[in-house]
Nucleic acid binder design. Structure first.
Lengths: 363, 363
DNA sequence: GGACGTGATCGAATCGATTCGACCGCCAGG
DNA sequence: CCTGGCGGTCGAATCGATTCGATCACGTCC
């Protein structure tokens, strides 16, 4: 005698229990019909599936499943800043694409979390403290991420840092950027350049811009920027001038280019910490009537495709952007399995010679 | 006499029950101490909070809360394509930024979902069928979204479409783009132009590129493209040539520009469906030694900031991108409250005259 | 002094699934 | 003929919180 317990009121979404009742099996068997995690007769499975379809049941409610499993299947991705700002640079976008392409097939979703909003009075997004996620990936680790790291640590959520300072207890995905810059610089030296200038990423959260004197150069807070500056020295070169920018954007490159190329002792080559900056420098050179590379050589970093720079093609240090994202995704997935320890990865870079470098002018 | 039921094994994360036991209150009271949804003595709340802190309890487990509430607090955002491709156009990024900026303060998170991967054999992301989300926002509604819409509908997840064909049962956030293109075209007509060409967004999922003849023009499958083409006709203009592109990217604009500007009867003005395309056309003109706007005028659409195009500043139809995102977020949040009906919104656009339009050459 | 309203707290049901151990036939091997 | 093993199914506990209704103490008003 069937007790009428669950009358699927038309307005209500059916649950696994409804399906089980309608198919005449127990809830546990119905569950097996969907998860496939256990022995079940093919006929039973089909019957349950069919009843489910008839009832308009579209599969197990993720919320129930997640609670039971203790896993949300969600990877939080903390982007360094307001999205608008982070993603004006295609670099982050490509990394993000790599992350999703790795995580998607594993059934893991990406929850987008804006990083600390302000620098003077950092406010971390409430999602960091309360959203369901099994592991977090932090992009562009430069920013005031200590707050974020702390908050995630408290929740004992494992962390993967993309580009950041190595620290115990979390995984860092980095690239051999110092060595890349060294190679690029040596390429310039090999061509005969001696007056080499640099255009850098921000030194720290204050994000000022302008020529950096020695004192300022001693106060580079962000690791990434310091590493890339170090690469120039590794090639045995001391830059004749260093221009610090407030963000890796074309307009800041142009600003830097104008300043550097108007110096009395004009540099014959400029090493830039990003392709966007380098592109901006090339535009500044054009604007000043200088030929690239005859009058000035320019190298970038990242290996982006800049169609608007044509016919010039940047000489640049290409980093494997999508692979960096995939590596981060892989590492995140790995940290998900119980007891796995964080591990760091360093990916290689490669110098790609384009049309923007050549021998220095005869002078 | 306290029964020793819950011994918080050091390895285990504490639960609300642990906190309640330690603080000597019931679970329900402990819950109140965190949610604040009910009367509770200030002293009790403090005590519970303090014990929680001592135990390292960082707040209610989102999974439990979500199941009970029947809400995940997650908004799925389906981007039209692989992220890499979608986000090469800053348009989507700005819209996404608008969405998060609206949703964040409401405590809602954004789950990033790649759209259908391929056109020939569309595969929709499994997340669409199984991820926890309360409502979905679909960006760039052109693509093979019927599959996605169907899948979401089956799960009875409300949908907000950004830029798409209006249809019953879902909300559409659109802009007055047809009217905007009309204004831009009339601006050109007012300047004296008669030979006006067009560079369009893709006609449909096949994404071919090249000159479109009349037959092809009768087969514009994507609504967005059709509307923008319609705007030209609304101004009483029949384009002397229409060049269809395969994506809204600079390089495709350049390709189109080269083709159009090499025609025997060169158009004196070119209306483009996006700023990236327009920027590409300007580059093509420069490459061919043509002056903008003396030899050819160019108008775009979107209102982006293109620092690499300087000193030229595009004449363009500016759309409120971030506001479009915020409107989508608002609408998504609205659909979350029980019984709210979908509603559509159309945002205004405005013609912004830059330096790329002027009177046609004398001839 | 008794009834009543109110603020604080508690118990228990509930959300929707997964999963462990028990159970039940049935077949094969000894 | 008995037993062991196994495929298939089921019941019940469990994940961690929210929330409804009940309870209780206390102060106030008539």
């Amino acid at each position: 005698m069937p007790t009428i317990e669950r009358v699927p009121v038309s307005q209500q979404r059916p649950t696994l229990a409804d399906v089980a009742a309608a198919a005449g099996v127990s809830v546990s068997t119905a569950s097996l019909a969907f998860s496939g995690a256990g022995p079940i007769a093919a006929a039973t499975r089909e019957r349950v599936r069919q009843t489910a379809a008839d009832l308009g049941y579209t599969g197990p409610n993720p919320l129930g499943r997640q609670l039971r499993r203790g896993r949300s299947g969600i990877v939080g991705v903390v982007v360094g800043d307001a999205l608008r700002r982070s993603f004006r640079d295609p670099v982050s976008v490509q990394v993000l694409d790599g992350i999703t392409s790795e995580l998607g097939p594993l059934g893991l979703g990406v929850l987008l979390i804006p990083g600390p909003l302000d620098v003077a009075e950092p406010v971390i997004d409430p999602l960091i403290g309360s959203a369901a996620m099994d592991v977090a990936i932090m992009l562009w680790g430069g920013t005031v991420n200590d707050l974020v790291v702390d908050a995630l640590r408290r929740r004992s959520i494992p962390i993967v840092l993309v580009e950041g300072r190595r620290q115990p207890g979390l995984s860092v995905i980095g690239i051999a950027d110092r060595d890349g810059i060294r190679q690029a610089t040596e390429h310039l030296v090999g061509l005969g350049h001696t007056r080499i200038a640099a255009v850098t990423l921000p030194f720290g959260p204050d994000r000022t811009s302008g020529f950096a004197d020695d004192e300022r150069l001693g106060d580079v807070r962000w690791d990434l920027t310091r590493r890339r500056l170090g690469g120039i020295h590794d090639a045995g070169v001391t830059p004749v001038a260093v221009y610090e920018t407030s963000a890796s954007l074309v307009e800041h490159g142009t600003e830097a280019g104008r300043a550097l190329l108007s110096l009395p002792e004009r540099p014959t080559a400029i090493v830039c910490h990003s392709d966007l900056l380098a592109g901006g420098v090339v535009l500044a050179a054009r604007e000043l009537g200088l030929r690239v590379p005859q009058d000035v050589s320019v190298v970038g970093f990242d290996g982006l495709d800049l169609p608007w720079l044509l016919p010039d093609v940047l000489t640049t240090v290409a980093q494997p952007l999508a692979e960096k994202g995939r590596a981060a995704g892989r590492e995140a997935a790995r940290l998900l399995v119980e007891g796995e320890e964080p591990a760091s990865v360093e990916l290689p870079v490669s110098l790609v010679v384009g049309t923007t470098t050549g021998p220095p002018p005869a002078s």
